[in-house]
Design a protein around this nucleic acid. Sequence first.
DNA 1: TCAAGAACGTACCGATCGGTACAAACTTTT
DNA 2: AAAAGTTTGTACCGATCGGTACGTTCTTGA
Lengths: 186, 186
Amino acid sequence: MARTLADRQDVIPVLAEVFRDHGFEGASLSAITARTGLGKGSLYNFFPGGKAEMAEMVLAHIDGWFRAHVFEPLEQTEDGLKAVEAMFQATDAYFRSGQRVCVVGVFALGDARDLFTEQVHGYFAAWVRALAGALVRAGRDPDRARADAEEVVAGIQGALVLSRALNDTGVFTRTLVRLRRILAGD
Amino acid sequence: MARTLADRQDVIPVLAEVFRDHGFEGASLSAITARTGLGKGSLYNFFPGGKAEMAEMVLAHIDGWFRAHVFEPLEQTEDGLKAVEAMFQATDAYFRSGQRVCVVGVFALGDARDLFTEQVHGYFAAWVRALAGALVRAGRDPDRARADAEEVVAGIQGALVLSRALNDTGVFTRTLVRLRRILAGD
DNA sequence: TCAAGAACGTACCGATCGGTACAAACTTTT
DNA sequence: AAAAGTTTGTACCGATCGGTACGTTCTTGA
């Protein structure tokens, strides 16, 4: 079996950046070939399903990262508050303090929405559920925990939108600080 | 001067819905002609600048609406808390409790971002400034007011993303309730 | 060393993109 | 009613879209 330098796995993060920058529709094949350095032949060799499969792989990759670095720590760390704090740090690192935008969020708002409904739904649902679980473990009332979790996840997404719109990463970091407060003290 | 049924002003709300559903890139001319019922000739007669001008007019229209129904009330109502409550009601009505998504937010995340930087920035900046002003009038410390205003505007955007992603308008209405709490009590 | 097969670049496909040209249809003015 | 001028549908433009076909290059096992 012949193997070359660029594995399929190596391409996915690059694809993710293209989709992040341009959305699904806007990520043209020419943009993708330019950024990845791969011709269409290679691309369709890796992803026979074309752009849709590329996007699916990107979403799966992101889902895997969050599952490993955010959702599972939230679910498994015994100290709920410690788990939440770890989530905030991982989130801040992942989104580069608001410089990077959320691909799943972009897909949720864009017109690829209908194509990836399930993955988009799953991502956010998993996040809210994991966070709510950690809050319950920290002693919070379940209903309240779920509401708070929703608010925090939404707040993160909104902060990304606002940071991008105002071109000010300060919005993101400030919002994270205030969201932390919601989960810690109040 | 010949005048026909559809005025340029009448077309803009329809255009807004197309851009809301498909984003800028995704709003193809064929989609626009289908939804508006106007041929390309009429469209380019109204908007010689093409799609970019249509989008600009849509953004200007939205900006005008928010200026009239949200920003100015926020700035002019003497009772700051009443002003804030009116904002929440107007916002909830405008976004149909989360069923409608924010065109400006869609543009902020999408790849039309660079084309409409100024309008996108202006919209959110105006909202934050107006809200912060009302909070100061309600007796809040200016720095804190600005931070809270940021958090609320971001929260609204995030709630729209999450509502759409989870296909649950409950997220939006619940988030609005909790954001109200931030501005009222705390 | 050399054939087998995977990876890759490129030319090409029909469809559609945003935009233009222009003539037919319609309004308005005379 | 007819001329003048505006609005609108339609045919068309080059460019680019996502995707396919296929010949070349490279890797690898025998």
